[in-house]
Design a protein around this nucleic acid. Structure first.
Lengths: 193, 193
DNA sequence: TCAAATTTAGAACAATTGTTCTAAAATATA
DNA sequence: TATATTTTAGAACAATTGTTCTAAATTTGA
């Protein structure tokens, strides 16, 4: 792994652990055992580090979506798989979700990129949804407006569940996953066949 | 209004507009036309300002709950009223909701106070819920576990709707309220009688 | 009205931060 | 091997921040 990637790795770990408020380029360099000058040789500005991490997240998310897209027929088990892997991803990039609004206004391209991601997710999940209607998982009489409403809930909960958890129970690992899965699935339960 | 309250007012406006990252005690003092030294005479530490604002929020929220509690019978209109007034409150203290996790770990008593608030809200809303079951608004066959799940959704959405909106459409004023109301009400629709 | 208490402005401080600069070291290339 | 390029460490800088200190001004209360 080259220095650039090592910086991203160290930065991610620190941001997740300490929060963006208290992490500085000096801290990142220190835990890596390199100089701050060297760090800024690889990433001129702090934002460049954060933006690179955000782009990693987007790439990883698209990978999940793509993995899901290869299924021709979707069942409840696939949905759970999808929920689980997106949770792992959210957990991995915790700090982004915890500081989403702040990052979005600090680094405008993050906000733009997020809106892109939302659009892609919407498309993909609407497709999954209709697939699962066809496969008899969901009721067939759900109006498109309600479907869109379900997706709004889904995205709001998945984007901010980790923040809510941080303020409340602070569950970790598998315990967190179990509750997250339950919280997300319960959006769907009223609409199951 | 005394200087202390004026500081809180100015700080709230600035935090909401500029975000906690870029607002300093010097900025707050500057827009007020007082010296930084004077500001720190009234609030020794920045956290004291933020904590005071958070306490204002909690007091105002409890007022809403209390106003709701005087109703003996609740209908759908009361629920909408409650949603509206809590939205106004959230909007008024935007910065707190946008930086909730960060504030919670920075100022531990905020996190503790939030957990208290959550507990009170849970109590109050469960009561409202059963009232509205009695009044024939909601279905009577909703298991307690599902009721709790609904509340989890409700709180997560109301606490983070403003963050989600900021990243997405950035709706303002009445337009924001209308969408918020719709988003919150749609949690309940599957359970209406 | 006069002393005591409170409030205020503004200078000062120490710490921190992001970033730049310089020169040395390491690495690649020919 | 010799030269060019890349990478590195560490000093340096300018700006900012939260906070403290001091002394003056203002207000309060007897």
């Amino acid at each position: 792994m080259n220095t650039k990637d090592k910086i991203l790795q160290a930065a991610l770990a620190l941001y997740n652990q300490e929060g963006i408020r208290s992490v500085t380029t000096r801290h990142i360099a220190a835990v890596m055992g390199i100089s701050a000058g060297n760090l800024h040789y690889h990433f001129k500005h702090t934002e460049d580090i954060i933006l690179a991490l955000f782009e990693q997240l987007v790439v990883a998310y698209d990978q999940i979506v793509q993995d899901m897209a290869i299924h021709t027929a979707l069942n409840m088990e696939d949905l759970k798989q999808c929920i689980d892997s997106s949770f792992r991803l959210i957990e991995q990039y915790r700090f982004i979700f915890i500081n989403f609004v702040e990052l979005g206004s600090w680094i405008p391209s993050i906000r733009a990129s997020y809106q892109n991601l939302v659009a892609r997710r919407e498309q993909e999940f609407l497709r999954m949804f209709t697939d699962m209607v066809d496969d008899g998982v969901f009721r067939a009489d759900i109006p498109p407006a309600v479907q869109k409403g379900i997706l709004r809930h889904l995205f709001l909960i998945s984007d901010f569940w980790i923040s809510s958890n941080e303020l409340r129970e602070q569950l970790r690992g598998d315990e967190a996953l179990a509750v997250y899965r339950q919280d997300v699935l319960s959006i769907f339960t009223p609409y199951l066949k």
